[in-house]
Amino acid sequence: MSTQQIPFVDYLELGDDPHLVAEECTACAARYFGRRNACARCGAREFHRVPIATSGEVRAFTIVTFAAPGVPVPFVAAVVDCDGTSVRANLVDVDTDPDHVHLGMKVALTTYVTGVDDEGVEAVNYGFRPVEG
């Protein structure tokens, strides 16, 4: 029996090769996650979907120690440069202290189950995990 899974966000593609998909402006190539009516950079209104690289480097991060009720802390929130596209995500499978997270850290996209509904459908989210070397 196969477990049904749904992506936590519309721009996460699941399957054999999970990856993120951005909306790219056909006029200026600006990229956005989620639906857009117009480009914030140039005002154009046409977009096409493009896959985003599944590996990258940490460009900024913060270790979150206070969050909304029910959100486990601490966790690492980061901006990851994926071959020129900035992705905001949490870092997973890493100790949440400055000795284990650093700018320029190589990371790779990963997915994980973040919840299960009453019918057993799994909601799958994404994050980035450190890459050896």
Rank of each mutant, 00 (worst) to 15 (best):
I52A: 02
V9D: 07
A29G: 00
G120L: 06
Y126L: 08
T110D: 10
R41W: 03
S2H: 14
E46Q: 15
V92L: 14
G34Y: 08
Y32N: 08
R59S: 13
A30C: 02
Q4P: 09
M1V: 14
D118H: 06
R31E: 10
F61Y: 15
D95L: 13
V21Y: 04
G133T: 11
S55Q: 15
R31F: 11
H48K: 14
P51C: 01
Y126F: 15
A68N: 11
H48A: 14
D10Y: 01
H100S: 10
I63G: 01
C25P: 04
A30W: 03
G70R: 10
Y32D: 03
F47P: 00
R49L: 15
A30N: 13
A123P: 00
V124E: 09
D17C: 07
A27K: 10
F33V: 11
H102A: 12
T26Q: 11
A53F: 04
A67R: 04
T62C: 07
E46T: 15
T110Y: 01
F61V: 04
N37T: 14
D118M: 03
V50T: 12
A67N: 05
F47N: 06
Y32R: 06
A78H: 03
A29L: 13
L20K: 10
G133E: 11
Y126E: 08
D118P: 00
S2M: 14
